[in-house]
Protein backbone atom coordinates (compact mmCIF):
# COMPACT_ATOMS: atom_id res chain seq x y z
CA UNK A 1 0.00 0.00 0.00
CA UNK A 2 2.90 2.32 0.79
CA UNK A 3 6.50 1.85 -0.21
CA UNK A 4 9.20 4.40 0.36
CA UNK A 5 12.89 4.42 -0.40
CA UNK A 6 15.22 6.79 1.35
CA UNK A 7 12.51 9.39 1.79
CA UNK A 8 13.91 12.67 3.06
CA UNK A 9 12.74 16.10 4.03
CA UNK A 10 15.11 18.88 4.94
CA UNK A 11 13.60 22.17 6.08
CA UNK A 12 15.52 25.37 5.71
CA UNK A 13 15.26 27.31 8.91
CA UNK A 14 16.95 30.41 10.24
CA UNK A 15 19.28 28.24 12.28
CA UNK A 16 20.36 26.18 9.30
CA UNK A 17 18.86 23.08 7.68
CA UNK A 18 16.70 20.70 9.73
CA UNK A 19 16.68 17.05 8.65
CA UNK A 20 13.12 16.36 9.76
CA UNK A 21 13.00 13.06 7.87
CA UNK A 22 16.41 11.58 7.18
CA UNK A 23 16.04 8.62 4.86
CA UNK A 24 12.98 6.54 5.67
CA UNK A 25 12.27 3.14 4.13
CA UNK A 26 8.78 1.83 4.76
CA UNK A 27 6.61 -0.94 3.45
CA UNK A 28 3.01 -0.77 4.60
CA UNK A 29 0.86 -3.71 3.63
CA UNK A 30 -2.70 -3.59 2.45
CA UNK A 31 -5.24 -4.00 5.22
CA UNK A 32 -2.96 -3.52 8.20
CA UNK A 33 -2.82 -0.97 10.96
CA UNK A 34 0.63 0.46 10.71
CA UNK A 35 1.81 2.38 13.75
CA UNK A 36 4.40 5.10 13.51
CA UNK A 37 5.79 5.60 16.99
CA UNK A 38 8.21 8.28 18.05
CA UNK A 39 8.74 11.19 20.44
CA UNK A 40 7.65 14.73 19.59
CA UNK A 41 9.74 16.18 16.81
CA UNK A 42 10.80 12.76 15.52
CA UNK A 43 9.47 13.44 12.03
CA UNK A 44 6.15 11.61 12.11
CA UNK A 45 3.97 14.46 10.88
CA UNK A 46 6.48 15.45 8.22
CA UNK A 47 6.52 11.89 6.87
CA UNK A 48 2.74 11.79 6.86
CA UNK A 49 2.46 15.12 5.09
CA UNK A 50 4.83 13.92 2.40
CA UNK A 51 2.94 10.66 1.91
CA UNK A 52 -0.36 12.50 1.66
CA UNK A 53 0.91 14.89 -1.08
CA UNK A 54 0.96 17.95 1.18
CA UNK A 55 4.71 18.38 1.19
CA UNK A 56 7.14 17.55 -1.61
CA UNK A 57 9.99 15.30 -0.41
CA UNK A 58 13.49 16.73 -0.62
CA UNK A 59 14.60 13.41 -2.08
CA UNK A 60 13.69 9.76 -2.21
CA UNK A 61 10.95 7.69 -3.80
CA UNK A 62 7.51 6.71 -2.66
CA UNK A 63 4.52 4.92 -4.07
CA UNK A 64 1.19 5.26 -2.31
CA UNK A 65 -1.68 2.94 -3.24
CA UNK A 66 0.16 2.05 -6.42
CA UNK A 67 0.76 5.62 -7.60
CA UNK A 68 4.04 7.44 -7.71
CA UNK A 69 3.92 10.21 -5.14
CA UNK A 70 5.85 12.72 -7.23
CA UNK A 71 4.37 12.06 -10.63
CA UNK A 72 0.76 11.23 -9.78
CA UNK A 73 -0.19 13.18 -6.67
CA UNK A 74 -3.67 13.86 -8.07
CA UNK A 75 -4.38 10.12 -8.28
CA UNK A 76 -3.02 9.53 -4.80
CA UNK A 77 -5.45 12.14 -3.45
CA UNK A 78 -8.51 10.23 -4.61
CA UNK A 79 -7.63 7.08 -2.69
CA UNK A 80 -6.25 8.41 0.57
CA UNK A 81 -7.80 10.12 3.56
CA UNK A 82 -5.78 12.27 5.91
CA UNK A 83 -6.67 13.36 9.42
CA UNK A 84 -4.23 15.97 10.63
CA UNK A 85 -3.02 16.47 14.14
CA UNK A 86 -4.75 19.86 14.31
CA UNK A 87 -8.21 18.70 13.30
CA UNK A 88 -10.13 19.62 10.21
CA UNK A 89 -13.41 21.40 10.83
CA UNK A 90 -14.42 25.04 11.10
CA UNK A 91 -15.95 26.02 14.44
CA UNK A 92 -18.99 27.75 12.90
CA UNK A 93 -20.19 24.90 10.70
CA UNK A 94 -22.19 21.82 11.72
CA UNK A 95 -20.42 18.50 11.35
CA UNK A 96 -22.96 17.17 8.88
CA UNK A 97 -22.37 20.11 6.55
CA UNK A 98 -18.60 19.60 6.70
CA UNK A 99 -19.06 15.93 5.83
CA UNK A 100 -21.29 16.68 2.85
CA UNK A 101 -18.93 19.36 1.51
CA UNK A 102 -16.02 16.95 1.86
CA UNK A 103 -17.82 14.31 -0.18
CA UNK A 104 -18.72 16.85 -2.85
CA UNK A 105 -15.07 17.85 -3.19
CA UNK A 106 -14.35 14.27 -4.22
CA UNK A 107 -17.02 14.52 -6.90
CA UNK A 108 -19.90 12.83 -5.10
CA UNK A 109 -23.39 13.91 -6.08
CA UNK A 110 -25.30 15.84 -3.47
CA UNK A 111 -27.62 12.88 -2.76
CA UNK A 112 -24.74 10.46 -2.46
CA UNK A 113 -22.81 12.81 -0.15
CA UNK A 114 -25.84 13.33 2.09
CA UNK A 115 -26.43 9.58 2.32
CA UNK A 116 -22.78 8.83 3.05
CA UNK A 117 -22.65 11.56 5.70
CA UNK A 118 -25.70 10.06 7.40
CA UNK A 119 -24.02 6.65 7.34
CA UNK A 120 -20.89 8.00 9.02
CA UNK A 121 -22.82 10.04 11.57
CA UNK A 122 -24.59 6.85 12.54
CA UNK A 123 -21.51 4.65 12.72
CA UNK A 124 -19.34 7.23 14.48
CA UNK A 125 -22.15 8.00 16.93
CA UNK A 126 -22.34 11.66 16.07
CA UNK A 127 -26.11 11.83 15.79
CA UNK A 128 -26.46 13.99 18.91
CA UNK A 129 -24.20 16.74 17.65
CA UNK A 130 -24.14 16.43 13.85
CA UNK A 131 -26.33 19.46 13.30
CA UNK A 132 -24.65 21.74 15.81
CA UNK A 133 -21.64 23.94 15.01
CA UNK A 134 -18.46 22.00 15.75
CA UNK A 135 -17.30 24.50 18.36
CA UNK A 136 -19.84 22.91 20.71
CA UNK A 137 -18.30 19.42 20.35
CA UNK A 138 -16.41 17.50 23.01
CA UNK A 139 -12.83 16.47 22.22
CA UNK A 140 -13.91 12.94 21.38
CA UNK A 141 -16.78 14.08 19.16
CA UNK A 142 -14.51 16.46 17.29
CA UNK A 143 -11.94 13.75 16.71
CA UNK A 144 -14.59 11.33 15.48
CA UNK A 145 -15.86 13.98 13.10
CA UNK A 146 -12.29 14.47 11.81
CA UNK A 147 -12.13 10.75 11.11
CA UNK A 148 -15.51 10.90 9.42
CA UNK A 149 -14.30 13.71 7.18
CA UNK A 150 -11.26 11.62 6.28
CA UNK A 151 -13.49 8.63 5.49
CA UNK A 152 -16.20 10.37 3.45
CA UNK A 153 -14.89 9.18 0.09
CA UNK A 154 -14.19 5.60 1.28
CA UNK A 155 -10.40 5.85 0.97
CA UNK A 156 -8.33 2.68 0.67
CA UNK A 157 -5.76 4.19 2.98
CA UNK A 158 -6.32 6.46 5.96
CA UNK A 159 -3.57 8.53 7.58
CA UNK A 160 -4.23 9.42 11.20
CA UNK A 161 -1.85 11.86 12.83
CA UNK A 162 -1.94 11.40 16.61
CA UNK A 163 -5.61 10.44 16.65
CA UNK A 164 -5.91 10.25 20.44
CA UNK A 165 -3.61 13.00 21.67
CA UNK A 166 -5.53 15.05 24.21
CA UNK A 167 -8.41 12.59 24.55
CA UNK A 168 -9.63 11.19 27.85
CA UNK A 169 -9.13 7.43 28.39
CA UNK A 170 -12.72 6.60 27.52
CA UNK A 171 -12.65 8.48 24.21
CA UNK A 172 -9.29 6.93 23.48
CA UNK A 173 -10.61 3.40 23.93
CA UNK A 174 -13.48 4.26 21.64
CA UNK A 175 -11.11 5.62 19.03
CA UNK A 176 -9.09 2.40 19.18
CA UNK A 177 -12.24 0.37 18.54
CA UNK A 178 -13.04 2.63 15.62
CA UNK A 179 -9.60 2.15 14.09
CA UNK A 180 -9.80 -1.62 14.48
CA UNK A 181 -13.22 -1.64 12.87
CA UNK A 182 -11.80 0.25 9.92
CA UNK A 183 -9.06 -2.28 9.47
CA UNK A 184 -11.61 -5.07 9.69
CA UNK A 185 -13.58 -3.54 6.85
CA UNK A 186 -10.49 -3.50 4.66
CA UNK A 187 -9.11 0.01 5.10
CA UNK A 188 -5.37 0.30 5.56
CA UNK A 189 -4.61 2.60 8.48
CA UNK A 190 -1.34 4.44 8.95
CA UNK A 191 -1.33 6.14 12.33
CA UNK A 192 1.23 8.08 14.28
CA UNK A 193 1.43 8.26 18.03
CA UNK A 194 3.84 9.04 20.80
CA UNK A 195 2.00 6.76 23.21
CA UNK A 196 3.70 3.39 23.71
CA UNK A 197 0.51 1.72 24.83
CA UNK A 198 -1.36 2.95 21.80
CA UNK A 199 1.19 1.73 19.29
CA UNK A 200 1.36 -1.56 21.13
CA UNK A 201 -2.36 -2.17 21.49
CA UNK A 202 -3.45 -1.00 18.08
CA UNK A 203 -0.80 -1.72 15.48
CA UNK A 204 -0.31 -4.83 13.43
CA UNK A 205 3.16 -3.54 12.71
CA UNK A 206 5.15 -0.65 14.09
CA UNK A 207 7.95 1.53 12.88
CA UNK A 208 9.78 3.43 15.59
CA UNK A 209 11.17 6.74 14.41
CA UNK A 210 13.66 8.99 16.13
CA UNK A 211 15.44 12.05 14.73
CA UNK A 212 13.99 11.35 11.30
CA UNK A 213 15.24 7.78 11.08
CA UNK A 214 13.52 4.45 11.52
CA UNK A 215 15.22 2.72 14.42
CA UNK A 216 13.07 -0.42 14.57
CA UNK A 217 10.35 -2.02 12.48
CA UNK A 218 8.18 -5.09 12.96
CA UNK A 219 5.18 -6.48 14.81
CA UNK A 220 4.93 -5.24 18.39
CA UNK A 221 5.69 -8.75 19.64
CA UNK A 222 8.68 -9.25 17.36
CA UNK A 223 10.11 -5.88 18.33
CA UNK A 224 9.85 -6.65 21.98
CA UNK A 225 11.26 -10.12 21.52
CA UNK A 226 14.25 -8.56 19.78
CA UNK A 227 15.17 -6.83 22.99
CA UNK A 228 15.45 -9.77 25.34
CA UNK A 229 12.56 -12.06 24.67
CA UNK A 230 10.37 -12.28 27.76
CA UNK A 231 11.32 -12.06 31.36
CA UNK A 232 10.11 -14.83 33.66
CA UNK A 233 10.43 -14.05 37.33
CA UNK A 234 10.60 -17.10 39.60
CA UNK A 235 9.96 -16.58 43.29
CA UNK A 236 11.57 -19.22 45.50
CA UNK A 237 11.63 -20.05 49.15
CA UNK A 238 15.30 -19.49 50.02
CA UNK A 239 16.42 -21.72 47.17
CA UNK A 240 17.34 -19.23 44.52
CA UNK A 241 20.85 -20.57 44.06
CA UNK A 242 19.60 -24.07 43.36
CA UNK A 243 16.92 -22.78 41.04
CA UNK A 244 19.45 -20.73 39.16
CA UNK A 245 21.73 -23.72 38.83
CA UNK A 246 18.93 -25.93 37.58
CA UNK A 247 17.51 -23.54 35.06
CA UNK A 248 20.55 -21.67 33.80
CA UNK A 249 21.57 -24.36 31.35
CA UNK A 250 18.11 -25.19 30.04
CA UNK A 251 18.06 -24.72 26.24
CA UNK A 252 15.14 -22.26 26.38
CA UNK A 253 16.89 -19.89 28.79
CA UNK A 254 19.05 -17.19 27.27
CA UNK A 255 20.25 -15.58 30.42
CA UNK A 256 19.53 -15.88 34.12
CA UNK A 257 20.23 -13.70 37.11
CA UNK A 258 19.30 -13.84 40.74
CA UNK A 259 18.62 -11.27 43.35
CA UNK A 260 17.48 -12.30 46.83
CA UNK A 261 14.76 -14.90 46.61
CA UNK A 262 14.00 -14.08 43.03
CA UNK A 263 15.42 -15.52 39.85
CA UNK A 264 15.00 -13.64 36.56
CA UNK A 265 15.12 -15.72 33.45
CA UNK A 266 15.41 -14.15 30.02
CA UNK A 267 13.69 -16.43 27.55
CA UNK A 268 12.59 -16.19 23.94
CA UNK A 269 8.95 -16.97 24.58
CA UNK A 270 7.59 -16.80 28.11
CA UNK A 271 4.37 -18.69 27.29
CA UNK A 272 6.24 -21.85 26.39
CA UNK A 273 9.03 -21.40 28.94
CA UNK A 274 6.73 -21.23 31.96
CA UNK A 275 5.37 -24.81 31.78
CA UNK A 276 8.90 -26.07 31.24
CA UNK A 277 10.16 -24.17 34.27
CA UNK A 278 7.38 -25.66 36.37
CA UNK A 279 8.21 -29.14 35.12
CA UNK A 280 11.95 -28.79 35.87
CA UNK A 281 11.41 -27.48 39.38
CA UNK A 282 8.68 -30.01 40.08
CA UNK A 283 10.80 -33.00 39.13
CA UNK A 284 13.64 -31.65 41.29
CA UNK A 285 11.21 -31.33 44.17
CA UNK A 286 11.74 -27.61 44.68
CA UNK A 287 8.69 -25.69 45.85
CA UNK A 288 7.75 -22.69 43.77
CA UNK A 289 6.64 -19.59 45.64
CA UNK A 290 5.52 -17.59 42.63
CA UNK A 291 5.94 -17.35 38.90
CA UNK A 292 5.29 -14.32 36.74
CA UNK A 293 5.77 -13.40 33.16
CA UNK A 294 6.97 -9.89 32.37
CA UNK A 295 7.23 -8.67 28.86
CA UNK A 296 9.66 -6.05 27.70
CA UNK A 297 7.75 -2.97 26.60
CA UNK A 298 8.23 -0.95 23.47
CA UNK A 299 10.04 1.45 25.71
CA UNK A 300 12.73 -1.24 26.17
CA UNK A 301 12.97 -1.39 22.38
CA UNK A 302 13.31 2.37 22.09
CA UNK A 303 15.78 2.43 24.96
CA UNK A 304 18.00 -0.14 23.34
CA UNK A 305 17.98 1.61 19.95
CA UNK A 306 18.44 5.18 21.13
CA UNK A 307 19.77 5.03 24.66
CA UNK A 308 16.82 7.15 25.84
CA UNK A 309 13.46 6.29 27.26
CA UNK A 310 10.51 7.22 25.06
CA UNK A 311 8.50 8.23 28.09
CA UNK A 312 11.07 10.87 28.87
CA UNK A 313 11.74 11.82 25.27
CA UNK A 314 8.04 12.34 24.54
Amino acid sequence: MIETHNLRKTFKSRRGPVDAVAGVDLDVKKGEIFGFLGPNGAGKTTTLRMLSTLLPPTSGEATVAGFDLRREPAKVRYVIGYVSQEGSSAPEIPGRTELVIQGRLYGMTKERAIARAAELIESLELADCADRPTKTYSGGQKRRLDIGIGLMHLPQLLFLDEPTTGLDPQSRARMWDEVRRLRDTGTTVFLTTHYLEEADALSDRIAIIDHGKIVALGTPDALKRQVAGDVVVVGTDQASDRVLELLRDQPFVREATTAGDVVRLYVDRGETAMPQIIRVLDSAGIPLASLSLNRPSLDDVFLRQTGRSLREAA
Binding site: R49, S88, Q102, D146
Partner: peptide, 13 residues
Protein backbone atom coordinates in the same frame (compact mmCIF):
# COMPACT_ATOMS: atom_id res chain seq x y z
CA UNK B 1 -4.52 26.67 12.57
CA UNK B 2 -7.67 24.56 12.71
CA UNK B 3 -6.26 22.24 10.03
CA UNK B 4 -9.03 23.11 7.56
CA UNK B 5 -6.69 24.22 4.80
CA UNK B 6 -4.59 21.05 4.98
CA UNK B 7 -7.79 19.05 4.88
CA UNK B 8 -8.78 20.72 1.60
CA UNK B 9 -5.32 20.46 0.12
CA UNK B 10 -5.39 16.69 0.58
CA UNK B 11 -8.55 16.45 -1.52
CA UNK B 12 -8.50 16.67 -5.31
CA UNK B 13 -10.18 20.11 -5.12
Amino acid sequence: RAGVIERFRVTPV
